[in-house]
Design a protein around this nucleic acid. Structure first.
Lengths: 241, 241
DNA sequence: CGATAGCTTGAGTCTTATCAACGTATGTGG
DNA sequence: CCACATACGTTGATAAGACTCAAGCTATCG
């Protein structure tokens, strides 16, 4: 999918501390740099990969954002995740070697492509890289399990609160404001992801705004009352404190 | 948690084709055998590990079954999974090195303990083992995503149907009947896992039985009309055909 | 300027949770 | 061995939360 083969450097990347290199030594990062390619920009609405594609690369989001979704035979879309800079796309395709999800850019974005075979080989040599990959996959499992709990036990307002807090925390870690940010996904995307009707998402935004927990202006969200949002989501979000 | 250090052999294990060894050569399995210990039997209701425990081993279920769950500050239990022979327990603890879930035996069970540090080291030497571990973790991610879709888009009957089919398939792969099996978990466990009230689970069992899709006798389930169950769950269960 | 996609709000309905009562099985101590 | 406690399961009645349907609004883009 990436058309150019420009070499990039994790060493000079502003988000490397959120990505794979965070656990590697300088020398190890240099070796990782050796196999990474930066792809051409991907414009809003374009695909990073599609279901059925052969799995060749993991992608580390460099800038922008993506959504991933499955498409069932009867045309039903199921959004499985959103991806921001520093996050890895494609871990779910390792098991079969075939992508099962579509990954679409939510805005003009760019990724670093990591050829999986070379990553695997390198991880045989570099224990830190190997451990880091295992940690990242494990973390993905933990996050999916947290989502499982969210969906099986929480009501609509609690889900929305947890979703907004998740975004807030991710932006904060990337050096952006934790309280003011733009949603790159639609209300429909959010509802699909959280198992809610689009109307419910819209009503919750209105309700949260009425209750002075957030302000909403189209895509722009400002968290006004973080404690209230934390309380709504349940106390499982200690990282915010 | 395991008290004895009896060496076991994957080579002679009846479920090795479902477990880690399935992708390894004879020689590689021998090296894997070198680090695996079989623990003492764990009786029903006893813990394999508890939240807060340090993560030292992955556990491969040998016989029996387990449930894993989180316990929130306010005492709410959230069941995150069920484990059957050949399945690996503990992948979610790799990321932090601390167990976040309780793992409790649903019946008298046994596990093989795989010291994670030694597994990691060995996987540096053995590309097949390394790839297999990555595949297993990736598969876990896929399964959690499928659960995400189940919980966000399916109604109560569809969830129950998918759950029963999942059990059926897992028993079938283990050489047991795909149509007649015992539930080792309670109705409450199932409801908690699927995001349904226990009364709803009970009603669905009754309804499925009335519609001659299954027969229920306490813990014993027989699938009478597999096509109907597949249709209910949505066609995503092709492996059953 | 019109078409389209995305969003908001209201009204009515339906699914599923909750509350309640009762039934069943198992195990314990007197 | 029986009485009792406890955990688990079933079924009915009711209520609430979220979905669906419907209508209209806003922004964007060709």
């Amino acid at each position: 999918m990436q058309s150019s083969k420009n070499k990039v450097s994790c060493e000079t990347c502003t988000i490397s501390q959120l990505c794979i290199p965070s656990a590697l030594s300088e020398n190890e990062v240099t070796r990782l740099d050796g196999i990474i390619n930066r792809g051409a920009p991907i414009h809003k609405g374009k695909f990073l990969n599609q279901a059925g594609d052969e799995f060749k690369h993991l992608y580390a989001v460099s800038t922008g954002s993506f959504k991933s979704y499955t498409l069932s035979e009867d045309g039903i879309i199921n959004i499985t995740g959103f991806y921001f800079p520093g996050e890895l796309i494609g871990l779910n395709a390792i098991s079969t070697g075939i992508h099962k999800t579509f990954v679409k850019a939510l805005e003009t974005s760019a990724v670093c492509a990591l050829p999986y075979d070379q990553m695997d080989e390198l991880s045989g040599d570099l224990p830190s890289l190997r451990k880091q990959l295992m940690r990242i996959m494990s973390k993905e499992i933990v996050e999916e399990q947290e989502l499982h709990i969210l969906l099986s036990r929480k009501n609509a307002a609690e889900r929305m609160a947890a979703f907004l807090l998740s975004l807030s925390l991710r932006f904060k870690k990337r050096g952006f404001s934790a309280t003011t940010f733009n949603l790159t996904m639609t209300r429909g995307d959010i509802g699909n992801y959280l198992g809610l009707a689009i109307e419910t998402v819209s009503r919750l935004f209105s309700q949260f705004q009425k209750n002075e927990i957030i302000t909403v202006s189209d895509k722009l969200i400002e968290i006004v009352d973080l404690p209230a949002l934390l309380k709504l989501a349940g106390a499982a979000c200690d990282e915010h404190i």
